[in-house]
Amino acid sequence: MQASFMNRTMGNGLAYRLDARAKMSISLTASLGVIILHSPQSLGLLLAASLAYGLSLNRPKPLLLCHAFLAVMWSVAFGFMHLMQTLNPNPVPTELSRLLVPFLRSAVMVNVILVMALSTRIQTVLTTLKALRLHRCIAIPAAVMIRFIPSFLSDVRQVSEALKTRGYPITPRFVLSHPLLATRLLIVPLVFRALRASDELGIAAELKGLGNLGSVRAFRPPRFETRDWMASATALACIAAAVILQVFTGGPRGGMF
C-alpha cells in the first residue's frame, strides 16, 4: 500500500488509466469469485486472468515478490502436512490439489490488491469516496484514514531514528527478545503523536467546514469511461467462465457446496 501514497509519477499501463471505482469493483468481484470457486482448474483460470491484470501495472518486481512469498508459505504448509502424515498413525489424506486451492485463492487476491494499491493515488481515492456519496459519518473517517497513513509512516520513521540515536536497535530480533520494552519505546510515542494529530486535524477540519461535505465539489470529477465498463465486464466474464469450467471439470468438493 505504501507505494500508492508516494508522490512519484504513475506508469502508463492500463491499470493506471482505469477509474478507481472500476478497480474497486474488480477487487470485489474477485473476492466473491474466490469464495464461490473450489476447483483448482477454475481457480487457475482466474489466477491467469488476474495475473494478466496485475502485469498491466508494468511492475513485475512486487508481483514476483508476493508470489514467491506465497510459494514459500505453500511449501511450508505442504511440508507440515507431510510431517503430520509421517507422525500420525492414522494419516489424513493430503492431496496436493486440495492444499493448493487456498493458496490459489490468495494469489488471485494478491494480484488484484496490488493493482489497486500500486496504481491509485490518494487524491483519486478521496475523490472516488466523495463520488460514491457516502454518509459524512463514514466519508470523513475514511478520508482521514487514508490521509493519515503517510504521516503516520513518517512518524514511525522519526521515532525509530530517535531510538537508534538513543542506542536502541529497532530490529526484528530486538522486538522479539524485548517485546514489552519495544512496545513501550515505539508505541507510546506514536499514540501520543496520533492523538495530538487527531486533535489538530479535527480543529483544522472544523475550521475548514469539512463537516458540510455536500457543498464540496471535486476540481476534476472522476469519470467512468468505456474502458472501465469493459474492464468490469471482463472481470465478470472471467468469473462466469471459471464457474462454467468448474461445473464441467468438477474438482474436489468443499464443505459448503
Binding site: R136, C137, I140, P141, A142, A143, V144, M145, I146, F148, I149, F152, L153, V156, P172, V175, L176, I187, L190, V191, A194, L195, A197, S198, D199, L201, G202, I203, A205, E206, L210, G211
Partner: peptide, 27 residues
C-alpha cells in the same frame, strides 16, 4: 458526531491498521 470525533475515529482506524501490519512485517 462532531467532526473532531469522526477525525479521531479515522486516525485510530489508520493507527490500528498500520501498526498491525508493521508488527506482522517485523515479527
Amino acid at each position: 458526531w462532531m467532526v473532531r470525533e469522526l477525525v479521531a475515529i479515522g486516525v485510530f482506524a489508520a493507527l490500528i491498521k498500520v501498526s498491525s501490519i508493521l508488527v506482522a512485517l517485523i515479527g
